[in-house]
Design a protein around this nucleic acid. Structure first.
Lengths: 254, 254
DNA sequence: TCGCATTTGTGCGTATGTATA
DNA sequence: ATATACATACGCACAAATGCG
């Protein structure tokens, strides 16, 4: 049970302890009231000086995980993760549903640019063709949870940025181009440390984790319509892969 | 495109650069021959001293990712992340397929224990009923990529640990109990920092990221058979959600 | 074989960050 | 707050191996 700390691995002891405390919280380290053991006890448990434990607690407090009160102790701020469904018919607002009072996706930028190799391959275009890029930020009850970048073929979806900005919904924007339904044809998932842009847009602490999904959406005939890269704040969401569900016309993909 | 390094957050620059190089390898950092840019170039790109880049390369060489040759350059030993499919018919070895010469899953422990609330709910049992827990380690070409914990109802699958240890396959072990096919009924995905057990079993550096999947598998009638928690080394794999595929009998889930 | 550019390997001095007492 | 030890990062210089004309 005693975590093994090591020096000289490029990760400071206080950060290893911070990770250890964060892991321990999910494992009954704090008592029923959310109170952590006193610093002296943690220092002994991890085999380090109390100063080092204090540095770890300060980092977690800065991340919003812990809250120290002089004379009372250190308490865990509990926050439940949102469950974000990944399926053939994934939609941002519909997916989060009743988990939050207010879910919204705001456009924070758009541009016309030339398709990179990945975008071109996903949309079935030649590299360098014009595409429209949309940047949006998903929030639940005002807290940023995801940052999404989408690409559309420019010749087919001229003006989609304005439509998305007005409606705040990819589904509604696509409906304006006669696309009544679309399906996710592929999704890849990876996780990495937050980059500077992630920490800024998603209001993350440095060193936080983001889950990155790369998806391609196609219309009912299977032709690619949109591709996207979405970065989720890993400490605020959990992805859930769902079985296929019937579409609005009652059909079901095989 | 330029990775943003941050000082003073408890993670050494050389370790951040090591992570950056590892991520960059999957993104065309190395040329066709697998050769990395020279140390001086990397140092300029990351905005650090060459010594610092050398520390990062040394760490990656120690992990088996890179190999330096004096006077020639630094070469990548393994080009990209493994792609691990998540679908209704996910299997460890079959999924990784031809991405590695040797994929295997070794049992590293087993125990009979009482079902926790989560396990009981997943398997459709009462909390506290006997279950069998299997711990296994998945490797590709000898490198650990995943650590999996599975639970089975003890009364129905008595002796499954021995069968799994001998065959190294959950599919084969279940076949021994008359279960010819099974489907993944649900999967949740989250990402967190590696705990001590993760760093030990998966040979990760402290502060590394693990992707955690929780899955329930059921037989063809939909009854739960097995549930599992799998931890993937986030810098070695990428998950991919796949569309439903027909089973060996030609059926397709709706 | 030689010379040369390129690239990795090594040594030293110094400043700052981390951890202990 | 101070002192001490070690890890990290930088800057400069030079040695050693490789490849090429």
């Amino acid at each position: 049970m005693t975590a093994q700390l090591q020096r000289g691995l490029g990760v400071a002891l206080w950060r290893q302890i911070a990770d250890g405390i964060r892991a321990g919280i999910a494992n009954g380290l704090a008592d029923e009231t959310g109170r952590l053991p006193p610093e002296a006890g943690l220092a002994e448990r991890f085999g380090v000086n109390r100063h080092t434990v204090r540095a770890a607690i300060a980092a977690l407090a800065h991340e919003g995980v812990l809250e120290s009160q002089q004379g009372r102790g250190t308490y865990v701020r509990r926050r439940q993760r949102l469950i974000y469904p990944i399926g053939e018919r994934t939609r941002f607002s519909a997916g989060l549903g009743d988990q939050a009072r207010d879910t919204r996706s705001d456009m924070i930028g758009s541009a016309k640019e030339q398709a990179t190799a990945w975008v071109a391959a996903a949309l079935g275009l030649e590299t360098g063709r014009d595409v429209i890029r949309l940047e949006s930020l998903g929030r639940a009850d005002g807290i940023p949870v995801s940052r999404s970048t989408s690409w559309f073929a420019a010749d087919r979806f001229e003006g989609i940025a304005e439509l998305f900005a007005r409606t705040g919904s990819v589904t509604a924007a696509l409906a304006g181009f006669g696309i009544s339904d679309y399906r996710r044809t592929s999704t890849s998932i990876e996780a990495r440390h937050a980059e500077e842009a992630d920490t800024r847009e998603l209001q993350l602490a440095p060193g936080a984790i983001v889950i990155v999904t790369r998806a391609v959406n196609g219309d009912l005939s299977g032709a690619p319509v949109q591709c996207s890269v979405t970065r989720f704040a890993a400490d605020r969401v959990e992805l859930r892969v769902e079985a296929a569900t019937p579409g609005p016309d009652g059909s079901s993909a095989g």
